[in-house]
């Protein structure tokens, strides 16, 4: 069995002008995984997707797709990679039928039914132009084209952009269905983290300039918690144990991967008296806020 990672990014450093996007970014995506790249605006989520697909040359470092360097991806490998651009961008001057006919000419394993199964659920005619469709309908056209291509990996840039809850749910369900099939790999970004919770196996959280965390989603959900407490202290510094500690009204809150006893011990060690400390399980969105802060 081939154990080579589907995606490998090694020591990626990139700047826009003088602004550092990341320094020495390293990560891998294994076959059969759904990996979500989470980050605030401007942390470089789309940038890494552009680098990965060979549409942006980083200052240094290399990304590989199926072992091929990003600036020389062969047509054979491109055949295995389905990409969704930010905003579900497509050749919108085509109509529903024309765009299917166009892409069918490139992919030997093209599955017309996979496309029309999705399209037939939309309230659109086959002659309807894509630029007259709603964002949700366009997302289904883009998804149908990707499924018909039968790629081994899907790279989705901000798939939830502009979608209402119904279409977001539909998109997530279809992606899950796709990934469950034949050990397919999915690498995606989204602003709407609550969608990711139901979808992704692994999670990379990007902060400005670096990866903050690369973990299994379930591990984050099981271990990362919010603690609220009262204290007379005026300042509680962040540490390796505590993340984004802040005062909210008369209570404080902090986030940690440690259990309540370790958190309490940490306060004692710094001579901080705390009362009424409570522990709370988090959604992925809350965990994201806990790790990256609100600002």
């Amino acid at each position: 069995m081939n154990t080579q990672p589907v995606i490998q990014c090694e020591n990626i450093t990139h700047y826009y002008g003088n602004r550092l996007i990341y320094r020495d970014l390293n990560f891998e995506v294994q076959r059969g995984k759904i990996l979500g790249l989470l980050g605030k605006n401007g942390t470089g989520k789309t940038t890494i997707i552009n680098i990965l697909n060979g549409f942006l040359k980083p200052r240094s470092g290399t990304c590989k797709l199926f072992g091929e360097k990003m600036d020389s991806i062969s047509p054979k490998t491109r055949n295995r990679v389905g990409i969704l651009l930010e905003g579900h961008v497509q050749h919108s001057y085509f109509n529903v039928e024309q765009i299917e006919k166009y892409y069918a000419g490139f992919f030997p394993q093209w599955d017309k039914n996979a496309y029309y199964n999705l399209i037939d659920k939309l309230h659109v005619t086959r002659k309807q132009k894509i630029n007259t469709m709603s964002c949700g309908q366009r997302s289904q056209v883009a998804l149908g084209l990707l499924f018909a291509q039968h790629p081994d990996i899907l790279i989705l840039d901000d798939f939830s952009m502009g979608l209402d809850p119904g279409y977001r749910r539909l998109f997530v369900e279809k992606i899950k269905e796709f990934a469950a099939n034949d050990n397919k790999t999915v690498f995606l970004t989204s602003h709407i983290i609550q969608d990711m919770e139901r979808l992704i196996d692994d999670c990379i959280i990007l902060d400005y300039g670096k990866i903050l965390l690369h973990e299994k989603t379930q591990h984050i959900l099981n271990t990362f918690k919010r603690f609220t407490f009262k204290t007379n202290a005026t300042n509680i510094p962040n540490s390796n144990i505590l993340h984004n500690t802040e005062k909210l009204g008369d209570r404080w809150e902090t986030y940690s991967f440690e259990n309540i006893n370790t958190v309490r011990d940490n306060f004692s060690k710094h001579n901080i008296n705390v009362d009424n400390i409570t522990e709370e399980k988090l959604s992925l969105e809350d965990a994201f806020i806990g790790l990256t802060g609100k600002y």
């Binding site: 697909n53 055949n79 497509q90 992919f107």
Partner: peptide
């Protein structure tokens, strides 16, 4: 112009052909 609008050229250059 349609290729450059919304950077659709990326879709064209991603096709499995040189």
């Amino acid at each position: 112009l349609p290729e450059i609008q919304y950077k659709r050229l990326k879709l064209t250059l991603h096709l499995p052909i040189k």
